[in-house]
Design a protein around this nucleic acid. Structure first.
Lengths: 231, 231
DNA sequence: GCGCCAGGATTGTCCGTCAATCAGGCAATA
DNA sequence: TATTGCCTGATTGACGGACAATCCTGGCGC
């Protein structure tokens, strides 16, 4: 079993850059849900050719971040409360699987890393701002997905997390939510520390369930408000 | 809540045709794993332009059916035993979720449809041939995914199923396997009939666990044989 | 006010081009 | 003979233009 010594300094193909840039812009709320993204605009925005932009759009379509209407082009996907509920349902089982895998298979270093990020999160005051919190949770999940030793869980959960970064922004913005989040994640960490896959899975599931409760309540309120305005 | 009455007779864009054709060809084993698919070849094969082919390839890459090596182009993804194990792990939880959702939310008609397909499957003799069995299982899953009322479970599970159609071909080819498959699915059906989401989930999980056992055993044997020849 | 039609804008698809990169063969050398 | 180094052909990554089909908008006539 020889190590892979090849260098990977490939200056990231342009297509990949557009892909990441677009994904990031959408996840960050730089484009509003439902917004139309004609390829002309995207070409100018990224300074890339239409072929590249279209390939990137195709990828984000597969990830669900963009929906392409025939002959109308790409739109930023809109996330209804019903869809969000479905996403949380899937996220629950996948995150449980990730936690279980991490507890069972992560290295000592990875466990330490996760603990470190959790400590940062626990020490962060609620007024620190959404961006900081989101970045920390992002790092938390990056380590979790890396350490769970299952590329498919990682990829799918990553897609789901991208898909509802907006939601997490709202659920995290609830000032009462942070302490709960920390408490729930602490249970995840503790289960991992005592190498208890079952416990980690249960803790993850519970965490997602609670996050879903908060997010869905907020989302449904928004929708009610919107419907009231509209009709 | 008005129904969508618009006709959708859009003659399926060429890109979509290429996409489906390619996916189908790979899943059916028309291309061998590891095979190189230069776009020139694909263009001739489908009679489409390079742009279209490349977009389609990009999508299948996102689905994991194809891996694109930088500057070398697309290759049919190879499925190692380790990866297969990961896939089955994810498939287990997703299929459980699908079964649970189906038992809880599918319509009377959908339950009847699933029952019908299962009856066909149960009445099929093991000598009927792989193609027939695969087609039946495909239909079974189509109904299950439609009735589970969760588009995300459906999409992700669909990807996983495409990804390992080859495996299911091998696991189904085991003559002793079919009766077991039928027995396992019967438990799924029974749980659904008595509207027992928990039971359906457990039955699905168990079904995947068994299928994984068989498939992984075969796969590992193949790999051992290959390694023996190679080293 | 309503339906219809023309015009502009956008997409779907194709094509040709060019540089960068990779694989394989060929020659030169030890 | 075996190894090294180079060169050439093939392929990808990316660009831009082009054209028909389709959709949306706004104005026109009734």
């Amino acid at each position: 079993m020889t190590e892979d010594m090849r260098l990977r300094v490939v200056p990231q193909s342009i297509r990949r850059q557009v892909e990441d840039g677009l994904r990031d812009a959408i996840a960050r709320g730089r484009f509003a849900p439902g917004e139309h993204l004609p390829d002309r605009v995207l070409c100018e925005l990224f300074g890339a050719s239409r072929s590249v932009v279209r390939e990137a759009v195709r990828l984000l379509e597969a990830e669900g971040l963009i929906v392409v209407q025939p002959n109308r082009g790409p739109f930023v996907a809109f996330l209804s409360a019903a869809e969000a509920a479905q996403i949380y349902e899937v996220r629950g089982v996948l995150e449980a699987l990730a936690g279980e895998g991490f507890a069972a298979r992560a290295s000592k270093e990875e466990r330490a890393e996760l603990r470190g990020i959790f400590a940062e999160l626990a020490a962060t005051c609620p007024e620190a701002g959404r961006e900081v919190l989101l970045a920390l949770k992002r790092r938390f999940y990056d380590v979790l997905l890396r350490g769970c030793r299952n590329a498919y869980v990682a990829r799918m959960l990553d897609q789901l997390l991208n898909r509802n970064t907006q939601l997490r922004a709202t659920s995290l913005s609830d000032p009462d939510r942070l302490p709960n989040t920390v408490a729930e994640l602490r249970r995840v960490i503790e289960a991992i520390e005592r190498r208890d896959p079952e416990g980690a899975a249960a803790a993850c599931r519970e965490h997602v369930r609670r996050a879903a409760e908060v997010a869905l309540r907020i989302l449904r309120e928004h929708e009610r408000a919107r419907n009231a305005r509209a009709g």
